[in-house]
Design a protein around this nucleic acid. Sequence first.
DNA 1: ACCATTCAATTAACATGTTAATTAAATCTG
DNA 2: CAGATTTAATTAACATGTTAATTGAATGGT
Lengths: 152, 152
Amino acid sequence: MDKHLKQASEKPRQTRRSLPMALLRARESVMKNFRPMLEKHNVTEQQWRVIRVVAEAGALDATEVASRASILAPSLTRIIKTLEQRKLIKRQNDSKDGRRVVLALAPAGEVLLHKAVPESLAAHKGLEEKIGGDKLMLLLDLLDEVALRAGN
Amino acid sequence: MDKHLKQASEKPRQTRRSLPMALLRARESVMKNFRPMLEKHNVTEQQWRVIRVVAEAGALDATEVASRASILAPSLTRIIKTLEQRKLIKRQNDSKDGRRVVLALAPAGEVLLHKAVPESLAAHKGLEEKIGGDKLMLLLDLLDEVALRAGN
DNA sequence: ACCATTCAATTAACATGTTAATTAAATCTG
DNA sequence: CAGATTTAATTAACATGTTAATTGAATGGT
């Protein structure tokens, strides 16, 4: 029985033309450009996202942080715990709603932010040069559209 | 001096226009289309990738599987362990190289594959309809290019 | 053949992804 | 107002991501 013929006729879709795999590989390559900066400041990718989202908003409840940083609630709970222990963020209680946890940057978090942001921007600039500004823009638009349409 | 430009250079980049975040969100949305099928067959996303890669090749050593499925070696070691316990794959020893582990589908793995592949293809077809065939193709090309150029 | 080096796989340790279950506070409804 | 329902956050349990260290098997040079 010829395995090659069988493969050609009823083989599963090639993994290379699979959208999930393509997204995964692209993200993997892209993140290589940010890892040195993250490691230098001793934060994980997800911790950095939380810090940035909180910084952008000034103060934000956990649910909104999770949504904007694309992190699930259980993960965020653990991330908050470690970031609070490291005094990078602080948690407050919402006066209106006793269930909510409101997050804001702590002083050490502000310091880290100001040190790391330029390096993050530089990494993104580097990507823009490698990929090309127009292609990058096009890709961002396509990704947003896919996120909307595929998200059901 | 334009205050918008000045502000833009000193504030963190908006998370919405960040390529890593865009890739993450897009992937998240895309995966929603596959999760029901994965859950139905009781495999994780990564287990499914391993099964498909092994099936595509017939038999493959672990390093190649890791590379093609975009899974790191330590993760693959654990995945192999569980897939072997569930008798979905089998491991053989490379006669030439005593270090290598060669993987192939076990009978139960073949059964699972043939049941799940049509559903996986259907999910991908559904995506193609939601996004549009040309855009999907364009996106796949862009992602491949980014994976190449950004990857160092 | 010997030793150092390289390489494949595994293990270890910690962080996150993912779904289900739980707890406490808010809200709805009769 | 009381009871049922919803909601935000947490906890639990298991799987994977990630880096460093380890083990055993090839390889290279001498």
